[in-house]
Design a protein around this nucleic acid. Structure first.
Length: 531
RNA sequence: GCAGCUGUAGCUCAGUUGGUUAGAGCGCCUGACUGUGGAUCAGGAGGUCGGUGGUUCAAGUCCACCCAGCUGUACCA
């Protein structure tokens, strides 16, 4: 392509993807580290699989016809086999476990994180490439495994600095849903499509409210843009039963005092304060919820089985002091319409997040999971019970970033050693090395320019201080150290440029032999880490 | 995918009922200030007005189609 100045290439990022800068990477690294710490504490071990799998291994979406299923990034290998970028970490884990089944300890407890890809419409907290962090227990049929994962989810949120009450681990069971639907005459193979429509409607309770769900269960619903969604076409009594079921959870509303507390870590420090906006906390009384569900729907054996499991989870969690302010039974949780077979859970943030224009932003669940006893069986022919969950790190991070109201404090930059005299670059380089040997981030100014541009550069880099040695200092065996942070403060009181330059605020001279020590003191004064 | 709204400088926006050479603030660069980041002042660079076609003597402005973004909705393994 010719470098034609009138038709230059437009630099642009494909939508749904994002570049990340230093501050974001630092935050991400901290979050991953904190999640990992909790998972390790629970005894899970690390495992990693590649981003690409055979398409057939990822699910039922084989690229039939000529083109692969939309939503998945797929391509053909040399041998014409279809490959796809993974769209979650669960299907690849199932492949890995099935392939290495004989040598893995059972139950096999593992965690992994990585990028996953979905080719769908992006939105707030929805990306085409995003990071997930999963933990799974394979080979344990006991609901104790599910209960443990719910507790771990709660621990993880708190470890990430999200205060109790500002998140909720909501639990439900697919068997209860199935039982309830069978109870209103939606059992059986021929009603599968209608069942799906009902489940989708239930899933929208948070977003549309009971009235919206009612409409979707009946004739249909018209949204605010005038678009119409066809409903499930249920009769009045059926609708009321489903609504009754969905609203069984006793929710109460309360204010969130401080959603984010004790973030401590510097990488998270840009998250300043959040609104004290009241938010609905999906609290409730699990025992009451269960009792109501049982009296209404317990006659159905499938539902009853699911309720037993939910009860065990609630009891196990409760015995470990994980009460309803953390883990709450919520009949409206549907999740993963396809492969979940028993308990399902999702984590929601209960505080409101607003965008730059002050409008509320809906992020949806930041983590989710459940029991998928059938997934590994696809590879092995024998049922292998498994349960796990996944944190949407990218979405969670997007939500937390929105709380920061845009102000991101970049991490401190390196100490910049300026080049005063071009003939003495070697000397300056040696000073840089002395700083580095002392464990201090440092760099030589590598650009061209006089002192002005060099200091401007240091300022832009967030350098805590610069080192200057001109001819005069050199002759005296001294170096100048300029504290840029202190200097910026002093500048507020200085009005004239002349005075500004002559006073040289926050700048001092030290003997050459002591300059590393002096730099170290400046860093310590500003609380900047170094070895 | 469907629907609504929006596209003017790097960013936020103004631009009269269609009328000379399309503006402002912020940001960026240069200088005042030849050994010093800020502030102030002066100057400068930066636009095929999202694209294409049409109506008109004349289009940033009106019309059609396309593209992109935002919001809602659908789908989401």
């Amino acid at each position: 392509m010719a470098a034609d100045s009138t038709h230059k290439l437009k630099a642009r990022l494909p939508r749904g993807l994002s570049d990340r800068g230093a501050a974001e990477i630092a935050l991400s690294r901290t979050m991953l580290e904190q999640i990992r710490t909790v998972y390790e504490l629970y005894g899970f071990e690390a495992v990693e699989t590649p981003a690409i799998e055979y398409t057939e291994a990822l699910g039922k979406f084989l690229p039939d016809h000529d083109r692969p299923h939309e939503g998945v990034f797929s391509f053909q290998d040399d041998d014409e086999q279809w490959l796809s970028l993974r769209y979650d970490l669960t299907a690849p884990l199932a492949r890995y476990v099935a392939e290495n089944f004989d040598r893995l300890p059972k139950p096999y407890r593992s965690y992994r994180y990585g990028w996953v890809f979905r080719n769908e419409k992006p939105g707030p907290g929805r990306f085409r490439q995003f990071m997930q962090f999963d933990a799974d227990t394979v080979g344990a049929a006991s609901v104790a495994a599910d209960a443990e994962i719910c507790m771990m989810a709660a621990d993880t949120m708190e470890r990430l600095g999200i205060a109790r009450g500002s998140y909720a681990i909501k639990v439900n069971n697919r068997k209860v849903l199935d039982g309830v639907l069978a109870g209103i005459g939606l059992g059986g193979r021929d009603k599968a499509h209608q069942r799906l429509t009902v489940l989708r409607a239930i899933d929208k309770l948070d977003r549309l409210g009971p009235e919206g769900v009612r409409a979707l269960l009946g004739a249909g619903r018209k949204d605010e843009s005038g678009d119409f969604t066809k409903g499930a076409g249920l009769a009045k009594e059926q609708i009321e039963l489903v609504i009754k079921y969905v609203l069984t959870r006793r929710s109460r509303t309360g204010g969130v005092k401080s959603a984010i507390e004790a973030l401590g870590k510097r990488a998270l420090s840009f998250i300043s304060a959040i609104d004290n906006s009241p938010a609905g906390i999906p609290a409730g009384d699990n025992a009451q919820t269960l009792a109501s569900l049982r009296s209404e729907f317990g006659l159905n054996p499938t539902a009853n089985e699911g309720l037993d499991e939910l009860q065990q989870i609630a009891e196990l969690a409760g015995a470990a002091e994980y009460k309803e302010d953390r883990i709450v039974i919520d009949p409206s949780v549907v999740r993963g319409l396809e492969y979940y077979t028993g308990p399902v859970y999702e984590t929601e943030l209960t505080f409101e997040v607003k965008d730059d224009d002050g409008r509320p932003v809906r992020f949806g669940a930041v983590a989710g999971g459940g029991r998928y006893d059938g997934l590994i069986a696809r590879f092995r022919g024998e049922p292998v019970p498994a349960t796990g969950f996944s944190i949407g790190v990218s979405r969670l991070m997007a939500a937390l970033r929105h709380l920061g109201k845009g102000e991101e404090k970049p991490a401190a930059g390196p100490v910049v050693v300026t080049v005063f005299d071009k003939d003495r670059v070697a000397d300056y380089q040696r000073m840089v090395m002395q700083l580095r040997d002392a464990g201090i981030r440092a760099e030589l100014y590598l650009g061209d320019g006089r002192m002005g541009p060099q200091l401007k550069y240091a300022d832009k880099r967030g350098a805590p201080c610069v080192v200057i040695q001109g001819g005069d200092e050199h002759a005296r065996g001294e170096v100048q150290i300029k504290d840029l942070i202190e200097g910026a403060k002093a500048a507020e009181a200085i009005a004239s440029h002349k005075e500004w330059r002559e006073t040289r605020p926050a700048q001092f001279s030290v003997p050459e032999t002591k300059f590393v020590e002096a730099v170290r003191e400046v860093l310590a004064r500003h609380g900047i880490d170094h070895h």
